[in-house]
Amino acid sequence: MEAMLKKFQQKYNKVKDNMSQWEDLQTRFVSHFRNASSIIHRFPVLQDSNNFGCLKSYHALPDKLLRKQMDSLQTIIMSMKLTLDEFSNVVGSLDKIVRDSRQLIKGASHQQLHQTIGVKPSLTYCIEGLQTLHDMHQSEYRLKSSLFTAFCHLTFKPNSDDLGALQQLLVDQPNIYKEEVDSIYNIVFPEDH
């Protein structure tokens, strides 16, 4: 039992690594999103050549500038797509951890699965916790995918309210409950408290 719990704790540490990788991806994704939004916001201003003052008739500058901004936007969107794939990899890796853990307890008796010693959690709890962490991130990944698709559509007919709403959802990560994550970790690592 004791040994088995140790093994689960190792799994949870792995999940923690995955989650911190997720955080890095999140930071990157949000910053891409912000940059892309500000380019999109700028488009109407750049499309009106009256805003160019003295540079209006300079070597087709308005056109060149618009094209260059389009290119940057495209590059950012490509990076967002890549980041999204990395999110998906994290979910895949969480999924593998859950599957491996289920493998670990194969053949354990009902009693072993539900037994708790002192403050230590039962094996069932450990498995369910891992599953919950995986599910949160999977839902969040799906949300991000849809947000990304919605965002790509918006680039052609921008509406600043919609962009703002998307950004808010993106930052909030409504499927990941920080408190729940913390409480799972508190129960699995009772000795840390």
């Binding site: 700028r42 201003v45 750049l46 009106d48 003052g53 003295c54 540079l55 500038l65 094209r67 260059k68």
Partner: peptide
């Protein structure tokens, strides 16, 4: 053609032009 030489300074027009200038500087077309 300079924007600041117009008779009255229009804050919005000026800030749009300034946004364009900064974008031009940044973009290095």
């Amino acid at each position: 053609c300079s924007i600041n030489k117009t008779t009255k300074v229009d804050g919005e027009a000026v800030s749009k032009a300034m946004e364009v200038y900064l974008t031009v500087w940044l973009s290095e077309v």
